[in-house]
Computed example of a mutant assay.
Amino acid sequence: MTDRPSPSRRELMIGAAALTAAAPAILRAQEAPSLKGRTVLITGCSSGFGRLGALHYARLGAKVIATMRGVPRPEAESLAGEAAKNGLDLHIVEIDVTSDASVAGGAAKALEIADGRIDTLVNNAGIGITGPVEVQDMEATKLIFDTNVFGIQRMLRALLPQMRAAKVGQIFNISSQLGRVIIPGGGHYSATKFAVEALSEQLAYELVPHGIDVTIIQPGGYPTKVWVNRNAYTGALKERSEPALLAAYEPFTRGMGTEDGSGRSADPMDVPRAIAEIMAMPVGKRPLRRAVHPGNKPQEAINRVSAETQLAWLGGSALGPLVKAVHD
């Protein structure tokens, strides 16, 4: 029997280098949870976290219903093509979250595709409009609240009945760091995301008896198309604003409509990966809030104090079991 030759030092070094290079991909493959058997509906899938998430959850085995407004549109065709190329169970449905009729019709179509059962809702659709508070006219104010807050309410009312009937389900609401902290000149973005935080936490308590978990995702700044869309809305606001009003709030108004998100290099896939990880957790063990960003997360201190305050205030009351179920 011939002895197998020992590998040379060069071969060992090449093998070690190959393993080192492959390690991140191997680790991601080991850590990626299976979402087989889940049906996930996501709003705002034309770009950013919504599009990335739709493909990611489908690759992990979920049936995905990716929604966006204005279908047909190139973004829908591109997403459908990517899904078909990879053999993914991904369906595109038109939903404009600012329209009662569109939400009702889109939700009905989605439930038909899902055989009446959608177990996970990701409320991702949202917009930003920057500028000082006084500069925000009622057109801008109504649009951002209608999208970021009322849009979530419409989706909840459309899909919660079938989740409650099944006594199981999961809701993710995309908030922001700016749902807890404030940047001057940020328009009503923080106001809407603060509202999302409050709505979501209240909902989490109320859904405990129904076996439905709620998680608030708080991303930091990521280089997504949100900057392009935000500039369109903000630029239009600046165009229709009085010059004297804009001048009164220099320097906050100077760059309105020109932010490009440059300098942000964090991987937007951080958000879909975090959501998938939480989806795979046991019912009742999922976090109420998850801050997502490789850099500074100033909201985490507020999250801790908020949980401690809720437990101290209501933990010993008749509502204590609901509050403890969410925070413990």
Results as ranks from 00 to 15, higher is better:
R286Q: 13
G255R: 05
P243C: 02
P251T: 09
A236W: 08
P243K: 07
L288R: 09
L245Q: 11
P268W: 04
R286F: 09
V292F: 00
M256F: 04
E259S: 13
A236R: 15
E250W: 05
Y249F: 09
E239Y: 02
G255D: 11
E277W: 14
E239F: 07
K238T: 10
A276V: 06
E239V: 14
P282L: 12
A291P: 00
F252R: 08
A274F: 06
M256H: 10
G261I: 00
I278A: 10
P268Q: 08
A291E: 11
S262G: 13
A248L: 10
M269W: 01
I275Y: 07
A236P: 04
F252G: 00
A244V: 13
F252V: 00
R264Y: 04
R286H: 13
D260N: 14
F252Q: 12
A236T: 13
A236I: 10
T253R: 05
A244I: 07
G263A: 11
Y249E: 02
I278Q: 13
E259L: 01
A274N: 15
E259P: 01
S241A: 13
R264S: 08
M269N: 12
D270I: 00
A247K: 06
V292T: 02
G261L: 02
T258M: 06
S265F: 14
A248F: 04
E239H: 12
S265A: 05
A248I: 07
L246G: 01
R254L: 05
D270Y: 07
G257I: 02
A244F: 09
S241L: 03
S262H: 06
A280F: 10
M279N: 15
A266R: 04
T258E: 14
G255E: 03
A236S: 12
E277C: 12
A236Q: 11
E242K: 14
V283L: 05
G261N: 03
R289N: 12
A244S: 14
G261F: 05
M256G: 06
A236L: 13
K285V: 10
